[in-house]
Design a protein around this nucleic acid. Sequence first.
RNA 1: GCCUCGAUGGCGGAAUUGGUAGACGCGUUGGAUUCAAAAUCCAAUUCUCUCGGGAGUGUGGGUUCGAUUCCCACUCGAGGUACCA
Length: 939
Amino acid sequence: MTVGYNFLEIEKKWQDYWAKNQTFKAENNSLLPKYYVLDMFPYPSGAGLHVGHPLGYIASDIYSRYKRHKGFNVLHPQGYDSFGLPAEQYAIQTGQHPNITTETNINRYREQLDRMGFSFDWSRELRTSQADYYKWTQWIFLLLFDSYYCKKSDAAKPLSELVVQFEQTGNIHVDAVCDEKVIPFNSIDWSSYSEEEKQRILLKYRLAYLSDTEVNWCPELGTVLANDEIVNGVSERGGYPVTKKKMKQWSMRIGAYAERLLQGLEKIDWPDSLKEMQRNWIGKSTGAKVRFDIQGHDGQIEVFTTRPDTLFGVTFMTLAPEHELVDQITTQEQKEAVAAYVEASAQRSERDRMSDVKSISGVFTGAYAQHPFTKESVPVWIGDYVLAGYGTGAVMGVPCGDQRDYGFANHFDIQIKNIFEGADISKEAFTEKGNTKLKDSDFLNGLTYKEAMVSVIDKLEKDNSGEGNVNYRLRDAIFSRQRYWGEPIPIYYRDGFPVGLKPKNLPLELPEVEQYLPTPEGAPPLGNATTWAWDIVNEKVVSNTEINESTVFPLELNTMPGWAGSSWYFNRYMDSGNSEAFVSKEAVDYWQDVDLYLGGSEHATGHLLYSRFWQKFLFDLNLLPVDEYAKKLINQGMILGSSAFVYRKKGTQEYVSKNLIANVEVEPIRVDVSLVNSSNELNTEELKKWQPQFKDALFVLEDGVYLVGREVEKMSKSKYNVVNPDLICEQYGADTLRMYEMFLGPLEQAKPWNTAGISGVHSFLKKMWRLYHPNDSFSVSDSPASKEALKTLHQTIKKVTEDIENFSFNTCISSFMICVNELTAQKCNEKEVLEPLAVLLSPFASHFSEEIWELLGNKTSISNAPFPVHEPKYLVESTKNYPVSFNGKMRFTIELSLDLKKNEIEELILKEEKTQQQLQGRVPKKVIVVPGKIINIVG
RNA sequence: GCCUCGAUGGCGGAAUUGGUAGACGCGUUGGAUUCAAAAUCCAAUUCUCUCGGGAGUGUGGGUUCGAUUCCCACUCGAGGUACCA
C-alpha cells in the first residue's frame, strides 16, 4: 500500500495517461470558444534545458490549463527554432552535420519537457530546419520578392500590378516605397528598356531586394561576423582585425511598414515598456529634408533635420565618413587626412561610435556647401558621430541649438551663431522649443518654434531646396547570412539578376557540403556545394559543372537569418501538417490569432518586430485575417545562475576559503555549482575528481569547511552554473518544481535560481496530500463542511482566480499555502471542500490533482473539470479593527460575524465612519466611505 | 552613450496602487514527539539601545496630514543596441 505522497509514481502515471489519451490535442473546430496560448519556441542548444527555460512554459501551461477548466478550446503548441549559429559552430569544429546535432538536442529537450508534464499538443510540433516547414518560409520570401508597397492603398501589392502600371503610364503616377529616387519614365520609355534595365528598376520596388550594405568583414577568417562575435574591435575567434565592407545583400523593406508597426501598437495588449522600446526603435521624427548645393560640384548634400527652424544658425555641415560624396568633394590638401579618418572609423563598430560621446573627432573636407537661403559658404566636415544608416547620413550643424553640434563647433573652433532672442549660449546650446523667438533669421525673425517650422518648410518647398519630411530610425532589415545552417534563399541568377523559383519547386533543400566554413575565395559556405545550380528546363537542382548561359544558372549562396523561420511559426501551428498551404483558410479563420504570447523581453526589437511585419505583409495579400498576431504578450524574466568560485593562491595548488582571501593574492576560478551545498560549502573530495587541475588541491578551511564565493550571472554551460531540472524532478517531482519556479517571484522579474526554498513548496504538497489521507489511506467525508471551511475555500477560490487572471502566480501559491494550513487546523475532511480544492490546484500541480481527482472517484481527466466559482455567500474579512487615515476618502476595516444582514453592516459602517472622524481630529473635505475589503455584501 | 526595466529583513519576495512596511516561503533559535534520527507539529524571528524608545524600503532632495508607492538628481544591477537566439 502506498503511504504518503509518491510523486514519482504519480507523475509517471499521468504523463503516460495524457500521452495515451491525447488529452491536450486541440481540434480545429469546436463549439467552444477558442483560446491560443503560445510560448516562444526554444533554440535547442547543446547544454540541454536548464531551470530557466521552463519558467515561461510553466506560466503559460498554468494559464492554458486554467482556460481549459473555464471551458475554452485551448491550443497550446510547442516546437523548435532549430536553425542557428551554435550548431554550425559545432559543425565547423567537429565536422558533424548540424542536422545531427540539432536532432540530438531536440530529443533531449523533448525528454526534459515531457518530465515536467506540460499540456502541449505535440501533434502540431514544428521545426524551422525541416524542409516541410522551411518550404513555406521560402514561399513567403518569394511573395515578398514579388511584391511592392503601394502608398496609396497603404498595403503590399503583387509586383505584377506594378508592371501593368509601368506598361500603361510609366512610374509617373506610381506612389510606392522604393530604395532610392527612381528616374521618372513613361510607358513608352518602359517598353524601350532592355529586360536588364526593367529588372534593375523592379528590384528597387521589391519588398525583398538586393542592395549594397555594410557588413563586419574579417579578412583573416574570410567571413562576415555578427557584432556579437566581435570583442574589443577584433574577432572573438582568433582575435583578428575586423573592418567594414560593402556587400550585395538581401534586405527586407520593413521601413515601408514603419508607420503601421507604430500604429498597430495601440491595439495590442503588450507591456507598455516593450511597446515603448518598439516605438523608440522605429523612432519616428518629423522635420524636413534640406538640400545644400556644393560649391564647385554638381551634386547636392541632402540633410534631414528635426529643427529646420534653426536653418539660419547653420555654420557647418557634417557627413558620415561612409557618405558617398566624401570622395568626390574632398580637396587635394585634405585628401590624406580624410582618408586616414575614414579608414580609422571603418575599424570602429557602430555601437562604439554611438556610445562614445565624450571624444569629439572629425576632419574638414576642404569643401564648402552653400546655404540655400543666405547663399553663404558653409564648411563641410566629416565626423563619425554621424551614422551613414540614419536619415541621409549627413547633418547640418547648428551649434547654438544642438548640444552635439555645439561641442563639435567648440572643439574645432567653428563659428557659433546665436539665432535665439535672449538665449545665453556662452556655455551650452539652447535646445528649448517653447516660445523663444528667432533672430538673425531673415524671414523667420520674431517667430516661435512652431510658427517658424511651418514657414521654413513652406519656403523650402517653394524654392525646391527641401521639403517637410518624416524620418524613421528603423532601418531595412538585412536578410542575407553568410552561413550554412539556415534556409536557402530560393533564388537563382540569370544575367546577374535574381529570379525566384516557382512555388511548385519548393522546398529548395539545403545542399550537402564538405566544409561548413566560407570558401577560400570568401564566398559563403554554400559556395562549397558542388550540386548547387538551377536547371530551368527540368526545374531541378543540378551540379555546378552544368552551369551554362541558357538553361542552368547559379543559385543564391546566402541563407536566411535566424529570424526568418520565427516570423510566422505561430500561424503554422494552427495547421502544422498541411502540405498544400502554409496554413489552411479554415484553420486560420477558426484560430485567428494568439490570445496569449509568453516570452522574454530580449526579443523586443528583433523577433517581436519582424514577426509583426510579416504578419502585416501576409495580411495585405489576404492570406491572414488579422494584421496583429498576438493580442496579449507577457515577458517572463530570466532565471539567472549563481556561479560558485574557489580562490587559488597565485602560483600554488592552495585554495583559500572565501572569508580568508583578504590579504592573499588569489585568482577566482569557477567551479560547478553541483559541488556546493546550499550553505556554500564545497565538497572538496568531489572537486578533486571533477577536473584534473584540482587533483592535488590543498584547501585552507575556515571553521572546518571550505566556503565558495557566489556571483549572479546568466545561466550558461561555460559558467558551470547550470541547474538541470531533471535532478529536481527526481528529488521533488515536477509538480514541486513547477510550483517552486512560480513561487520564486513575479513572473516578469529576473531572478537568481536558488534551490534553498524548494522544501517549502514540497512540504505544502505533502501537507495537502495528508488532507485527503488522514490516516495514511485515502478518506474523505460526504457530510457537509463547516462554515469555517467553506469560508476558507471561497476565500481561496476568489484569491486564486484573481491571481491567475493577473498572472500573479507567486502570491497565488501563498494563498494555497494559507488555505491548506487553515484546513489542516480545522481538520477539514469534507469532499464538499476538498474536491473543488483539487480542481483549483490542477493548473499548478497537475499530476497531483489528477491523482486526487481519480481517488475521489472520477473517471475522466481533471483537465476539463469546471473551475470552481467564488460564491460570495460568506463575508471575507480580517479580524483586526483599526483606524487608518484619510485623504478625501476614508478607509477602515470592521470585524464582522458571518450572519449579519446587509443593513446591519451598513449601520456598522456609518457608526465607524463617525468614530473615525472624531479619532482623526481633522475634518476631511469630503467623505467617501470605502469600507476596506467589504465588497461582497449579500443579503 | 542611447532605449527599457529593476533595487524592501540573513535570503526569495508581499503590501488592496498614496494609508498598520515585511503576507507567504526559506533560513535561524527555542519547544513538542522520538531510545535516537528523519518526518511532523507549535512558538519566536527588520535592526538597535540604557526596555522607554529610536531608526528603517539603494543615495540625496522635493510634493503631501501621510511616500516602498508620485516628482527631480544620482549610484549600482539586468536586458536590448540592428548578423546570438
